[in-house]
Design a protein around this nucleic acid. Sequence first.
DNA 1: CTCTACCCATAGTCTACCTATGGATGAGTC
DNA 2: GACTCATCCATAGGTAGACTATGGGTAGAG
Lengths: 114, 114
Amino acid sequence: MAAARDPFKVDLLPGTLDLLLLKTLSLGPMHGYGIAQHIGRLSADALRIEEGSLYPALQRLRLKGWVKAEWRMTPTRRRARYYELTRAGRKQLAAEVSAFDQLVAAVRSVLKPA
Amino acid sequence: MAAARDPFKVDLLPGTLDLLLLKTLSLGPMHGYGIAQHIGRLSADALRIEEGSLYPALQRLRLKGWVKAEWRMTPTRRRARYYELTRAGRKQLAAEVSAFDQLVAAVRSVLKPA
DNA sequence: CTCTACCCATAGTCTACCTATGGATGAGTC
DNA sequence: GACTCATCCATAGGTAGACTATGGGTAGAG
């Protein structure tokens, strides 16, 4: 059952994946699988993050110093890698949110001129 | 004069270029240079379409049958290639506008949960 | 002990953008 | 007449970042 509308691949908005990850991690440390679940849930399953996009993206964020990673145990006693925002990551998040908003506004101004 | 804020490269939202081109052409046939001018003007110079992105994109749209092209003279008596939306192009435009809106809504639902 | 849900990750491919480059023509200027 | 600027077209080469496909390991339930 379940609405069964085709979820967007984030592909349609490359560059936005980082933003979604940073935002999600701003709520607290989380492991990869959990991040994908969280984004899916919040967007009512409209956004689906594929694992093949997710983990490379997390590596990227790590290399850029925006998140740090650490192996821990989940509440269900499974081994998982927890990702956490750094201070630089928080700054980056703010910048990207702002850029996203401005960009959407600019596109809208072309699509729906006053 | 002019705020001098760095114009976005459309780079930030790949996939959106086609949408902007289709929308602009829905206002009537136009040549490449004019399209870029138009988008820059409507967005208050927030969006800048580089020629190296523009012409390949127009070719793409042509191959997909969404626009057709024709050599004509400009009002200033210069030779230029005029692009025009096809019926399929109009349909595609509607679909892309709708997808864009839904996608932005989905991203916002993650960025700013109710 | 098998199956499902959880959890990680890489290789290879493809799309679509950017930078850089090159050329032609009309109009105005000295 | 030569120069220069704005207009107009287009391709080559590089790169980023997503996708598909694949592979593996572990805990808990039946």
